[in-house]
């Protein structure tokens, strides 16, 4: 059986909030290393890969592989009843037809308990190989969100160009064009403000801004975001959380002429 206790419900609330507009029905695949999810959006252009490591829970118990088939709209309805600071416990049997959730207020004067019906989801799984990306950019997640939102006002796609001079986000729209270039920033006092660019070769790829803006809903999970880019493969946008947990988004590029 699964028993997983989160010190603060907000972790799960934020994760589900960040992905629920991209994927609806998906399996939480549980085993002794944690809770994983991989799901593509309907158009097969974007993919969500979540890993909540056992270390992010206290305690975490799961002695065999359990697939928890969830509708994220339904899960959101239940999670809305949890306060951010509540202690959240997930429980499920080995072959579950429901997921038990309890929310306990931190001063323990209120315990809410919900059982959510599960679904049988036959999910398509993609094998994503470990990749050495040509460019890895680490930046404040708020900055990435601002760039995507600003450019989306002008165009539906953005070209991300990483070179030795920095990283450039450029768009071309009906009303004109625009670009934002970022250079390396080293803020010793506040490392969250750093912009780091690791480059093995220059890259330039075009992506749909609609999806990137959607990924930015994960901004609350982490103060920094990492973009991994190579000319030959989809973009990887990664939000790292405590305990080695992460939320990753993969986005297939658009191909120019």
């Amino acid at each position: 059986m699964l028993e997983a206790r989160l010190e603060q419900a907000q972790l799960l609330k934020k994760v589900v909030d960040a992905i629920k507009d991209l994927v609806q029905d998906c399996n939480f695949d549980c085993n002794d290393s944690g809770i994983a999810l991989q799901a593509m959006d309907n158009s097969h252009v974007a993919l969500v890969s979540m890993m909540l490591k056992a270390e992010s829970f206290n305690p975490f118990r799961c002695d065999r592989n359990i697939a928890i088939g969830l509708n994220l709209v339904s899960l959101t309805k239940v999670l809305r009843a949890a306060q951010n600071e509540d202690i959240l416990t997930l429980k499920a049997e080995d072959a579950p037809d429901s997921l038990n959730l309890t929310f306990e207020s931190s001063d323990k004067d209120r315990i809410s308990e919900y059982d959510l019906k599960l679904m049988d989801i036959d999910q398509e799984h993609l094998g994503i190989p470990d990749t050495d990306y040509s460019a890895t950019i680490s930046m404040p997640s708020a900055e990435f969100k601002r760039i995507c939102t600003d450019l989306m006002a002008m165009s539906e796609s953005v070209t991300i160009e990483a070179g030795k001079d920095g990283i450039k986000f450029a768009c071309n729209g009906d009303i004109g064009n625009g670009s934002i270039t970022l250079r390396t920033v080293q803020d010793v006092e506040n490392k969250e403000n750093n912009i780091e660019i690791a480059l093995t070769e220059p890259v330039s790829l075009t992506f749909s801004l609609k999806y990137l803006v959607n990924f930015c809903k994960a901004q609350n999970l982490s103060k920094t975001v990492k973009l991994h880019i190579s000319n030959e493969v989809p973009l990887l946008v990664e939000y790292a959380m405590e305990g080695g947990s992460y939320l990753r988004f993969y986005l297939a590029p658009k191909i120019g002429d």
């Binding site: 593509m40 799984h125 993609l126 297939a252």
Partner: peptide, 14 residues
């Protein structure tokens, strides 16, 4: 308008 590639063109199913 530039064509949108899908993920299966890069990653295998299964």
């Amino acid at each position: 308008q530039v064509p949108q590639i899908i993920l299966e063109q890069y990653y295998k199913s299964g």
